[in-house]
Structure formats: C-alpha cells, structure tokens
C-alpha cells in the first residue's frame, strides 16, 4: 500500500528501501512506541511501532476507537509527549520539543475568557515572546478569512461554539505554521456546525498551504477533509492501514455524496471492522 501522501511502512522495515526519502516527507514517524507506567500491574501501551510519512501540503486524518493512541501520536509529533521508543523527524529535524512552525488546536477551543477575540488570536505571538504589532494585521486577515472580522473586539462568551473554534484556528495559524495539528477540534460543537467547520477548515488549510494532521473519531469528518486517512486500532495503538481519498481539495458540502467520499468512508469502516475497531 504505497501512497503518494502518507506511507506506513511495516513495523520492521524502517531501514528497508521503498520508504520515501526523508527529504521529501515533512513528518516522518519511525517505530514510535509510548508506554505509560501504571500504578498497578503492567504498563499501558498507548502506541506500538507506529511508522508513517506525511508529505508537505497533505491533509492527513487519523481515525480510530478511543484509546488507540491517536491523540498521543499527535502530541508526540507536537513535541509535547516524548515517545518511549522510535523517532520522529519534522522537516529534517529530530523532534525534541515543540517545533517552532507548528500550530495546534484542541477539542475544547481553549480561548482565554479575559481576552477579546483578536487578543486571543494574538496570544500566539505573546506566548512566543514576539512583538504583537507585527501580527495585528495578519490576525485581522485571519479573522476575516473565517468571517469573524466584525467580532474582533468581542469576548469569547459572546460567541457560539463554532465561532469560538474558528478563533482557535486563527490563533493556531497566526505565526504562519507549516504544520497544523488538530486534536478533535470539532468534538464539542453541534453536528450542523461541525459539517460547516469541515468545509471551512478544508478551505483554510488549502489556502494556507499548511500540512495538516487531524485526529478524530468521526469517520465521515476524517474522510471528508483528508487526502489520506490513517486507521488505527487500540491496545496497543498501531496503524491498521491507510485509506486514500482521491479527490481534489478544498472540499465542499456536495463532496459528502461523491462516490470517492463514499468509497473511502466504506473502506475505513471495513478496515476498522477487520481489525476489531468495530464489533460485527
């Protein structure tokens, strides 16, 4: 299963030819494992021998049942969680801490209630110790892109869940990241807003030309936005397989009834069923 966008070599072949040359892949995960020490009994194995390559500009979804380690994998790539084995290389550099040109957004929008919408977006510059004056214009432009320019001086509690999540996305993109990591960013919004956000984010990522990794437990969402879907199984978390979604981006609402979408979604479901992610 060789994909032009994502490749998951068999666990043992990290040195075998056939892998993408490291210079071509933006994120390269090799044999990554993560164990959490348990207070009693055996350690919990969150990830075991996970390998994959993500090409520049790709949108990759990672989908799998709860506890399959997909969030742990994202945090490891983000440099926020140290793997217990294997290595992760982002843009040619071994990950030892947060990669400077990385943007991240979590399930809860994590907006600061005491900052206005624009100030929340500019938090990215503040946290990095950069002068915010150089970012105000970009902050406003990002807000305009997600249709929130009129809300720049509003406070988060005045916004709906979907609007808040779009602000969080602007914050993640403020410093022009080359890698965007989304950890279930649409988990807390209602179903209709979620479908709209899927379209919005698909467009934004395409425009920003940012490589994106989305972790989700929603198969339709995973397929809708992605070039390729990495399916994981749990206990221990491993890559069960990769399903390609062969259709141009950005995606629009109509893509949900496109044969390519349905084919890929079915393939993901079958893969989950075959690997025990679904009970028959």
């Amino acid at each position: 299963m060789v994909s032009p966008i994502v490749e998951a070599p068999a666990p043992t072949v990290s040195s075998t030819p056939g892998l993408l040359p490291p210079s071509r892949s933006q994120v390269s995960v090799r044999g990554v494992g993560k164990r959490f020490a348990a207070r009693k009994g055996a350690a919990v194995v969150a990830l075991e021998q996970v390998s994959l390559d993500i090409l520049p500009g790709a949108f990759v979804s990672v989908v799998g049942p709860s506890g399959c380690g997909k969030s742990t994998l994202l945090l490891a790539i983000a440099g926020l969680e140290r793997p217990t084995s294997g290595s992760i290389v982002v843009e040619g550099e071994e990950v030892k801490g947060p990669f400077p040109r990385m943007g991240i957004a979590f399930q809860r929008d994590s907006l600061l209630e005491w900052r206005t919408v624009l100030d929340n977006v500019l938090l990215q510059a503040d946290l990095r110790g950069r002068s915010r004056s150089g970012y105000i214009e970009r902050g406003r432009a990002l807000l305009q892109m997600v249709g929130l320019e009129a809300f720049a001086s509003h406070y988060p509690h005045e916004l709906s869940g979907g609007m808040r999540q779009r602000v969080a996305l602007c914050r993640a993109l403020l410093h022009e990241p080359t890698l965007l990591l989304l950890d279930e960013p649409f988990g807390a919004v209602d179903a209709l807003t979620r479908e709209q956000l899927n379209v919005d984010v698909s467009g934004i990522c395409e425009v920003s030309n940012v490589t994106t990794m989305l972790v989700t437990h929603d198969i339709n969402e995973a397929v809708f936005m992605a070039d390729a879907v990495v399916v994981m199984t749990s206990r221990p978390g491993t890559v069960a397989g990769i399903v390609e979604v062969d259709a141009p981006k950005p995606r629009t609402h109509g893509f949900r009834s496109d044969p390519a979408f349905l084919r890929a979604a079915t393939a993901v479901r079958e893969l989950l069923e075959a690997t025990g992610g679904f009970r028959r």
Partner: peptide
C-alpha cells in the same frame, strides 16, 4: 498550559 507549551513559552 499545553497550548502555552506548544508555543514554546
């Protein structure tokens, strides 16, 4: 806090 750490603060 994770957000802060991700921004290398």
């Amino acid at each position: 806090i994770l957000l802060g750490r991700a921004a290398d603060a």
